[in-house]
């Protein structure tokens, strides 16, 4: 019986580690994407990954470490708040850019770089 509990205990922290590392990976990928991707909308897409996937995974990992405590409830509330607000913020920014007539980069990167800033019509 106690070995089962011990295994569960180890599994909990192992899983938490996996979640935290995964979250860290998505945050890092988002940061690299914001720096490297070619235009506004693709960069926004990268930033959105950081906000939703990265923070959700990190919060899940922290909740596993905290266990059944008040801290976990607070983390869950933070997660809910981020889960609702960050996609909304991304949407608002993209919508504003679209309304301001910022054209997305279509076609391959090189094609658009060559000359026409039409946005490419395929």
């Amino acid at each position: 019986m106690s070995t089962v509990l011990e295994i569960l205990h180890i599994a909990r922290f192992g899983l938490a580690g996996v979640f935290l590392l995964g979250g860290g990976f998505f945050v890092l990928a988002g940061a690299i994407g914001v720096l490297r991707l070619p235009d506004f909308y693709t960069r926004l897409h990268a930033a959105g990954v950081t906000d939703t996937m990265g923070s959700t995974l990190i919060l899940l990992g922290l909740m596993l470490i905290a266990g059944f405590t008040l801290l976990s409830v607070k983390l869950a509330l933070v997660g809910l708040f981020l889960f609702l607000t960050s996609p909304t913020a991304t949407h608002a920014v993209a919508n504003a850019a679209h309304k301001a007539k910022l054209k997305p980069l279509l076609g391959t990167y090189r094609q658009t770089r060559k000359g026409d800033n039409e946005g490419g019509s395929q």
């Binding site: 609702l84 607000t85 949407h91 608002a92």
Partner: peptide, 15 residues
């Protein structure tokens, strides 16, 4: 306009 913003902010403001 801004349907998403309106719905989400209506949820968020009381909270």
């Amino acid at each position: 306009h801004h349907t998403v913003l309106r719905v989400v902010s209506k949820m968020m403001i009381p909270l």
